[in-house]
C-alpha cells in the first residue's frame, strides 16, 4: 500500500496490463471500460502496453467496414480521467516494426505545471517495465 499523493486516505497502485490487439477479441475494449470506471476510485493508475497490446494505440484506426465500434478515441480521453501514465514497451514496438510515430497522440494537462499539455505515452524498456510491475499493489491483465 502506498499513500495517496496529498491525501490522508491510502490508495493502491493499480496497473492494467494490455497484451492483446484490438478488434480480434473484446479484451482491449473491456479493459478500457475497467480503466474508466476505476478512475473514479482515485487510485494510482498506470497502463502498460506490451506484446500485441501496443497495437491498441495505433494511429488511424477505422472500423466502419467491419461494423465494430472504433474505441481508439477513448485512449485520447484518458487524460480527462486523470489517467496519465501509459507505458509502452520499446521491445514490443521494435518487434512489430513500430515507432512512437505510429501511435496516437495521447496527452494530458498537468495541473501541477500550469495545465501544460504533456504526453501520456511513455516508451520504456522491458527492464524498466519489469520495475514498474514490481512496484504495483494490484495488477489486472487483459
Amino acid at each position: 500500500m502506498s499513500e495517496a499523493a496529498g491525501g490522508g486516505a491510502t490508495s493502491k497502485k493499480f496497473l492494467y496490463v494490455n497484451r492483446k490487439a484490438p478488434y480480434g477479441t473484446i479484451y482491449a475494449l473491456e479493459s478500457l471500460e475497467v480503466v474508466l470506471i476505476g478512475a473514479a476510485f482515485e487510485q494510482d493508475v498506470s497502463l502498460a502496453f506490451i506484446d500485441d497490446g501496443v497495437f491498441q494505440l495505433s494511429k488511424g484506426q477505422s472500423t466502419d467496414a467491419i461494423g465494430v465500434k472504433n474505441f481508439s478515441p477513448t485512449y485520447r480521453a484518458l487524460g480527462d480521467y486523470e489517467v496519465t501514465k501509459l507505458y509502452v514497451e520499446k521491445e514490443s514496438l521494435d518487434e512489430r516494426g513500430l515507432t512512437l510515430d505510429d501511435l496516437m497522440d495521447v496527452t494530458y494537462e498537468d495541473e501541477d505545471d500550469d495545465y501544460e499539455e504533456k504526453p501520456s505515452i511513455r516508451v520504456v524498456s522491458r527492464s524498466e517495465l519489469a520495475d514498474i510491475m514490481a512496484g504495483q499493489d494490484v495488477i489486472l491483465s487483459f
Binding site: K12, F14, E33, V34, I37, G38, A40, F41, Q43, D137, V138, L140
Partner: peptide, 11 residues
C-alpha cells in the same frame, strides 16, 4: 453489479 465491484475487490 458494476465494474466498481472489481476495483473494490482490488482495493
Amino acid at each position: 453489479s458494476g465494474l466498481g465491484q472489481l476495483i473494490e475487490a482490488g482495493i
